[in-house]
Amino acid sequence: METTAAAREAAFDTAVAADERIEPRDWMPEAYRASLVRQMAQHAHSEIIGMQPEANWITRAPSLRRKAILMAKVQDEAGHGLYLYSAAETLGTSRDELLDKLHAGRQKYSSIFNYPTLTWADVGAIGWLVDGAAITNQVPLCRCSYGPYARAMVRICKEESFHQRQGYESLLALSQGTPAQHEMAQDAVNRWWWPSLMMFGPPDDESAHSAQSMIWKIKRHSNDELRQRFVDICVPQAEALGLTLPDPDLKWNEERGQHDFGAIDWNEFREVLKGNGPCNEARISQRRRAHEEGAWVREAATAYAAKHSGDDSGGGSDAAGEVTA
């Protein structure tokens, strides 16, 4: 038996080292499975919690064009949540189970969504900075060793790149608009810049899961590497936008061929992670409320499906799922 287990483990390690994809039916170490579930769940939860700060502006979007773009974006996020929960199901963990853990505070979502969207410009800043940071993080995941996650990420990254462009374009319109609009855009960038840099996670020497995830090729670049890449991308974009980034220490380092930037307030990061951010309570309460208030609807769909499982009325429990096109 032991040789078989060792052989399986060796085959897994070889496949991962050779950049082959691990598929749901393949044998995998339990720790690899658990690590993926943790990461995919956190990612899925981030998509659905991330709907809230932006949905906050759907009813106030200042033009019909912007309203349509924003609504489509929030809809995409719900869709991303669906792909990711489905991808996690291939590891034997149901969506209900993961949602229960989210609602109980036992699984996390990206801390960035614990900041409030106070003005319309925040919607643009989220698109440019938050989605920009997410793309920087996520593009390497398209090559993640676990097949279903990698494939979900290919679709998601395409849509995220549209989100990032619309955010940039929306901020550009504000920056080049009236003085009040310009000020609104600058204020939003001032508030979202540092939290966006925190999205890459703690510095490499403090990152709990990084080393093993790199070996497993769930992760391909370190937190600090990705953070640096993001800063280098944003600096020229901020200039093109006519906006400044709120960091007096930000400057080009000729020797490194990269930008130096100021110290991140990791204390703030840890506090928000612990639940003390401005919106932690509100976000999770809204999520729980939507889930609890929807319970009778889900129960009705299940009861109906059970009653009609033998007929062809087309009202099966998954009929609502047909509309996700």
């Binding site: 659905i48 949905a55 609504m71 719900a78 969506r95 929807g294 509309v323 096109a325």
Partner: peptide, 15 residues
């Protein structure tokens, strides 16, 4: 948006 009884309905109602 963000209040629907299930994720599929968040997508459908937005659609």
């Amino acid at each position: 948006a963000g209040h629907a009884p299930e994720l599929e309905e968040d997508v459908a109602l937005a659609n």
